[in-house]
Write a protein that binds this DNA or RNA. Structure first.
Length: 257
DNA sequence: ATGGCTTTAAAATAAAGA
């Protein structure tokens, strides 16, 4: 079973690329981030036409997450991350599909830092860790997939100096991410590629793609039961090089049935 | 680089991203 995460940077602008990717790679579950559309304009007909059922949690203009399941309607578990009533950003959606629990996560960027946006990022990471612990207690095979906006280690960025002052690799961001690993969650891509040098994002600017100046910020965290089933984890890198591509590439895990 | 592109919303610029 293949479970993928893909920050598509606008589902309207990316729709032909998204459908193409679904048809080519046929993930069983796809978690999308930055759909950047309100709920009423989500292109559900096109998604269904590609053979997928879907849940979505949209927002006008930015943010927005979705969960797609091939030939199946995902069952919604939670919409929005608990712990901060005044948080109106659409960044979290959780569902059951294909016998597993899955969350689609769009973690706040946090720039500029320091500042209120960075504070919000750290609070959000605490809330995510709390929610992850609650799911853990349910003992269901779980995949927490999405754009975490965290570069976990120096080996996950093309040049540490370029991102030194960025929210994505501040010690506080890394500590919060690693705390979840310490809780027992497995970073699937890192476990398959321990040497690093695997990117999931390349900036549109400054020729980042042609010179392969990227970093790794899209992650799939597996609960122990899911990690026991891990076969491989990869990046659909070639999709980043296509016409009108997202600045992220899809990332996926293969789990034993 | 004081964001060098890109998307969205919306009508020319501005916000947001990472």
């Amino acid at each position: 079973m293949r479970i993928a995460t893909f920050n598509i940077n606008g589902i309207k602008a990316r729709l032909p690329r998204l459908i193409e990717w679904l048809e080519e790679t046929q993930p069983d579950i796809a978690c999308l981030q930055e759909i950047k559309t309100s709920d009423d304009s989500f292109p559900i007909k096109d998604i269904e036409g590609a053979g997928y059922g879907a849940l979505w949690h949209g927002q006008k203009g930015f943010n927005g997450v979705a969960i797609l399941a091939r030939g199946e309607q995902p069952v919604e578990i939670l919409r929005g991350l608990p712990g901060e009533a005044e948080d109106e950003h659409s960044r979290y959606l959780e569902a059951d599909a294909k016998g597993v629990r899955v969350a689609s996560i769009y973690l706040p960027n946090g720039n500029p830092c320091p500042g209120p946006k960075f504070d919000y990022k750290l609070r959000w990471m605490k809330r995510l860790r709390d929610r992850a612990a609650a799911i853990w207690a349910e003992e269901v095979p779980t995949i927490l997939a999405g754009d975490y906006n965290v570069i976990p280690y120096d080996r996950d960025v093309y040049a540490t100096q370029a991102m030194q002052d960025d929210a994505l690799m501040q010690p506080e961001s890394r500590t919060a991410y690693r705390a979840m690993l310490g809780d027992g969650w497995t970073d699937a891509l890192a476990s398959i590629h321990p040497a690093g040098g695997v990117w999931t994002y390349w900036d549109y600017q400054a020729g980042a793609w042609p010179r392969n100046a990227g970093f790794r910020i899209d992650h799939l965290l597996l609960s122990p039961v899911a990690a026991d089933r891990l076969v491989t984890a990869q990046v659909d890198k070639d999709h980043r090089g296509r016409e009108k591509a997202s600045d992220h590439a899809p990332v996926w895990v293969e789990l034993r049935d």
